[in-house]
Nucleic acid binder design. Structure first.
Lengths: 350, 350
DNA sequence: CTAAATATTGAGAGCGCTCTCAAGGTAGAG
DNA sequence: CTCTACCTTGAGAGCGCTCTCAATATTTAG
């Protein structure tokens, strides 16, 4: 398929380059017959304007970059990212944007990639998952003036745009759910990877407090959102004999469940578990069915693109913009599970 | 951070635009003192040449597109894609390429996206997963003359470049493994989604044949590589009372196992299962531990980029290039599993 | 019917870079 | 010391497009 230029199309249609450009960009004030003639040539040749040339003059590439500064392992272990990517991709397709994906495999790579992405003007803006605390990267990025939207609250308090779920409410809901089932000695597995962990922990504390339950550091174990970390955290928590445990993401919840099984404990008869994310694997999991807090991950990706687009277009006031989403749902915790849990409270004693 | 141009850097260093360009592109024949002077200015200003302008003149964007023409569901259900993406991303980072990801969410979107990607000259080349049979898309792509490398043999016999694992050997190995364990009545769950299914089925048939076992259509069930399809295929196969089943990917194997559990059958005591892919979830799975054929998925992604790069650089002869990989390993099928299987053969009768 | 307003089009500059070409320098050969 | 060969640099064209500006064509008001 031959590549045409505006000039050539113009020649074929008997008009100038400029007129063809006008037709393509839907300018008003073009004589209908000329428009038709040009459109006919375009249709016949299959002409599409060169994106690079367009970008050069308009200084807009219509490319948005997605940076996921997690280790490789996480991106696989945690289906969370598949959802984020998908949401973003979908929104890009809808908005005529192109998605460039930057997975970071090492710290050195991080530096290089960020440098290149920021410096060469290839992307109009950046979406970054707040997977990990990283102040160095943040500094470079903010200095670049490039429009950026974070997914999840980033680890700094400057005025950055971000899209996030309401982690405090989420933590609160999860904990309250367990309390409502009659548990009093409730453990929590928190991630220290980013702010979301703190926030969910905060919700946990508040729920305990609101229901007159004491908070104890002993019942807090830490993980990094990975299956393994959930497993180890649970092993540690078992010693404290909690009646129930709130794992701050589903992946750690699965790790925790494995630890419990290994210890010969039944879930939820001996120890109840609630997760966070509502991943499909959680929805499908049986033996036991996992209760979990729904997080509209995919929607978050969509919103991030929309927000970024606004930032790029300068439609957002200078003040930092924080878009919260709080559509919280309990995952379909099977009814029988709740029944079991209720029975469990009668037998389990700390 | 101010954006500089070559011209400005030149002025600051007291040389012409052209000289700065030469320094950046490491041309020989530059007086050392001038080179140093220019490099100093570059370092001090943090100048990086504008990628778009570069692309315009060199007609090379250094962007490679990855098209995954699967339904959304698949991309999540099957961690396979996470690995492919990661391999490609890694290789891109190493080679100074930028990865653009195109997830296709609908057929209409497919048409639009492909059209845009192919027509606007934004990518230097394309990597496409042969997830689904799709001749329409293939036709457009081949007509475009754009360098393309498929991952997995595409559904046509024209001269397209592709990187693939040796599916026939894989199917052969899996089946032979089951045969070596003493099973004779071996079922198979095949995907009809792309050629890989046929090839794995072919390997299965050959293995049966080489070991003097009959092939029966009755023992073949079909799926689409999804968990659900594995589940349903197994339900169907159960009626034929196979002693063992070869699921042509791990995800379907998990579905099959679920079906067996539901039917009150033990794995592998009552029916043995072998998978294909060697996903980490398979490696980690217990209850039962899943035997599986290792597929170097990530490596495939790396190879695809390398090959594409060669094609783009015109280093590949016109003849189609087919790069096979056959590093086959049995996944660590726990020894006890094999023992169990061996015992099972004594009890299980068709 | 004429002037003013508006519609329609092309010429040309320029986005930031690469690359060719030619000019001026410098060094080695004769 | 002169000639040739190579080194070193800048000027300028041009990648394909957008957009301003000015010129021409058409319409409307008076």
């Amino acid at each position: 398929m031959k590549r045409y230029t505006l000039e050539e199309i113009g020649k074929l249609a008997g008009v100038s380059r400029a007129t063809v450009s006008r037709v393509i960009n839907h300018y008003p004030h073009i004589r209908p017959e000329i428009r038709e003639r040009v459109e006919a040539v375009i249709a016949q040749t299959g002409f599409q304007p060169n994106a690079v040339a367009r970008s050069l003059v308009s200084s807009r590439t219509n490319i948005v970059g997605l940076i996921i500064p997690s280790t490789v392992e996480e991106v696989f272990t945690d289906p969370y990212y598949a959802y984020v990517i998908n949401g973003i991709s979908q929104s890009c397709n809808t908005n005529g944007l192109i998605l460039s994906l930057f997975l970071i495999h090492s710290l050195e790579e991080e530096r290089n990639v960020i440098q290149a992405v920021v410096g060469t003007g290839l992307v109009d803006g950046l979406i970054i998952t707040a997977s990990r605390r990283n102040r160095e990267m943040l500094a470079t990025l903010l200095a670049s003036q490039l429009p950026i939207v974070f997914i999840g609250q980033p680890d700094n308090d400057t005025n950055t745009h971000y899209v996030d779920v309401d982690n405090v409410s989420g933590g609160y809901l999860a904990t309250e759910h367990l309390i409502s089932l009659g548990y009093e000695n409730i453990g929590i597995i928190v991630s220290y990877m980013n702010k979301s962990g703190e926030a969910r922990l905060d919700g946990y504390k508040r729920a305990l407090n609101d229901h007159g339950l004491p908070f104890s550091e002993d019942l807090v174990a830490y993980g990094d959102y990975s299956l393994e970390s959930g497993y180890h955290a649970m092993k540690q928590l078992i010693k404290r004999k909690p009646q129930a445990v709130f794992a701050t993401n589903d992946t750690m919840a699965f790790g925790a469940i494995r630890a419990l099984k290994e210890a010969g404990l039944r879930v939820p008869e001996d120890i109840a578990i609630i997760g966070f994310d509502d991943l499909p694997s959680a929805q499908r999991s049986e033996n036991p069915a996992l209760s979990t807090i729904h997080q509209p991950i995919q929607q978050t990706g969509l919103d991030a693109v929309e927000l970024l687009l606004k930032v790029v277009n300068g439609e957002v006031q200078k003040a930092q913009h924080q878009s919260f989403r709080q559509r919280w749902l309990f995952a379909k915790a099977a009814a029988h599970l709740e029944r079991l849990a209720r029975e469990a409270k009668n037998t389990a004693t700390s």
